[in-house]
């Protein structure tokens, strides 16, 4: 029999925490001033503080893509950046792309091609697809498959996702 101990801080002392402070984020064209601990991720800021739960958490470690948002038009994993680092940036989430009665072309294409099942990876897929379109690189099916591979879909809706993204990419040409 051996003893295992999970230890706290190296010297056994817990440092006083840095208190939350106001952070202003520009999300979907609107400023939100939130009281955040400095180590709050952009993802948690969106979901827990700004009330925008369309952006999903699938791993919190940059491994799944569910948390993809657009920052100044570029797709990023919002779990891998701190909210404070995005002050001044233009953040677009799924809520900013379209709404139930004014769907974005990607959103419509995802519905038409049944490019999801549970829908949990979907906002990330759609934001990622918009990022891919902004990059202007992917044209062929293989390129789209490759460049959409940062977004896991455990339901396995890849055939539909490819069809939906391809349709919108083609329409843009």
């Amino acid at each position: 029999m051996s003893t295992v101990s999970t230890t706290s801080a190296a010297d056994g002392q817990l440092r006083p925490l840095v208190p939350p402070s106001p952070v202003t984020l520009r999300i979907n064209g609107q400023d939100h001033t939130l009281q955040l601990a400095p180590w709050t991720s952009l993802l948690d800021a969106l979901r827990e503080y700004a009330g925008l739960t369309g952006t999903k958490k699938g791993c919190d470690h940059g491994q799944c893509g569910a948390c993809t948002v657009l920052v100044d038009g570029k797709r990023i994993n919002s779990c891998l950046t701190l909210a404070v680092l995005q002050e001044g940036a233009d953040i677009t989430t799924i809520e900013g792309l379209g709404s139930e009665h004014a769907l974005h072309p990607l959103q419509q294409a995802f519905i038409d091609h049944d490019a999801f099942q549970c829908g949990y990876c979907t906002p990330g897929q759609i934001c990622s697809a918009q990022g891919l379109i902004n990059e202007g690189k992917a044209q062929t099916e293989d390129e789209i498959r490759e460049l959409m591979s940062g977004n896991v879909c455990r339901c396995g809706a890849y055939v539909g996702i490819l069809a939906a993204v391809k349709e919108v990419v083609d329409a843009k040409r």
């Binding site: 369309g54 809520e95 139930e100 769907l103 519905i111 906002p123």
Partner: peptide
């Protein structure tokens, strides 16, 4: 098409850890 499709693609479908 799925009747809940518009909710899912717009991020309005609420999953358990998302209720305010």
């Amino acid at each position: 098409s799925r009747v809940e499709g518009p909710l899912k693609v717009t991020g309005q479908a609420k999953y358990s850890a998302e209720f305010s």
